[in-house]
């Protein structure tokens, strides 16, 4: 299969991480049954064990049973403890995009390195956060550091089981979706992480994608500067979330579409550990970078902004 590394482009890999029970399998099942799943999507799972594939979707399986072909032109593939073998097998097939479930005890950053496998390239790391157990797990003597690392290494958080813990709040300036979000699958499929703030030429440039940039607040600003910032973001900006310190107090900020809400933190509420905003934009690379630049230019006139993606 050595000729396969000759293919001209690298296949992007989206990682789905998160601790045991955070909802990875549920999410994978949703992806597999998503009507808009583009042909050529390969879903890599640790084990077919809990995966539900509608019988009517199954078109055939490989001899050793590790690859299942689906009638929508996608495939589902079991890693079975040998990721390199699974990736080499994918190379012989017409695959455009890989969605890879990581083990519940994997650190996403370590698996991210694995995505540099010849012929592949990492695209985004999505980590599921179980709202009902996250806080307790972070303190666990065995997996506390692992669960914290998983959350810290994510490019996109998907909060699951929020119904079991409605007040759950994750103090991370990482873009965040709910597992109930109607656009969840589309957003995950199109999420693109950019390593160093420059847009790479590798991926999906002809297709719109989701990206996020984070503004870390260094100085206290005026409340009206914040209003101006939120009102003047480009059309490609889908969501804004974060905490901002103003001369009138700290505001929790959330903007979905054109509706922005700002809630002042009460004195008795805990102060967030990180101040800033995460801005999620959708569109082609050009429109996103313009929008981000606009926001940056606007803000730079009034406040110091440091962006990092």
């Amino acid at each position: 299969m050595s000729d396969s590394v000759a293919s001209s482009h690298s296949i992007p890999i989206t990682l789905i991480g998160g601790y045991l029970g955070a909802g990875k399998t549920t999410l994978i099942n949703k992806i597999l049954s998503y009507p808009g799943l583009p042909p050529g999507t390969a879903v890599l799972v640790n084990d077919f064990g809990d995966i539900n594939i509608d019988e009517s979707l199954i078109r055939g399986a490989s001899n050793d049973g590790t690859v299942i072909g689906l009638s929508n032109g996608c495939i589902c593939c079991s890693i079975s403890n040998d990721l390199s073998k699974a990736l080499d097998e994918l190379h012989g097939l017409e695959v455009e995009h890989v969605i890879m479930e990581t083990s519940g005890v994997a650190e996403p950053a370590r698996v991210w390195q694995h995505c540099h496998y010849p012929g592949f390239t990492p695209m985004a790391c999505v980590v599921l956060i179980d709202a009902s157990s996250y806080a307790a797990r972070c303190q666990d003597k065995y997996v506390g550091s692992l669960v914290r690392a998983q959350a810290a290494q994510a490019h996109l958080h998907v909060v699951s089981k929020a119904d079991l813990n409605p007040g759950f709040e994750l103090h991370h300036l990482t873009p965040q979706l709910s597992s109930q979000d109607p656009d969840l699958i589309e957003t995950i499929l199109r999420w693109q992480h950019v390593d160093d703030g420059t847009f790479t030429d590798l991926l999906l440039l002809n297709k719109p994608s989701f990206r996020a940039q984070t503004w870390y607040q260094e100085e206290t600003i005026a409340r009206n500067s914040l209003d101006a910032l939120l009102n003047n973001l480009g059309k490609s900006v889908q969501r804004v979330k974060g905490w901002v310190d103003t001369f009138e107090g700290i505001y929790k900020v959330s903007k979905v579409g054109s509706v922005a809400t700002m809630t002042k933190l009460k004195d008795n509420e805990p102060r967030p550990t990180i101040l800033g905003l995460v801005i999620i934009a959708y569109g082609d690379a050009c429109s996103i970078s313009e929008s981000i630049e606009q926001a940056g230019a606007l803000a730079s006139g009034q406040i110091t902004m440091t962006f990092s993606s």
Partner: peptide, 9 residues
């Protein structure tokens, strides 16, 4: 690491 797997395959 995974590059080793690539070689071993």
């Amino acid at each position: 690491e995974l590059g080793l797997g690539f070689a071993i395959n």
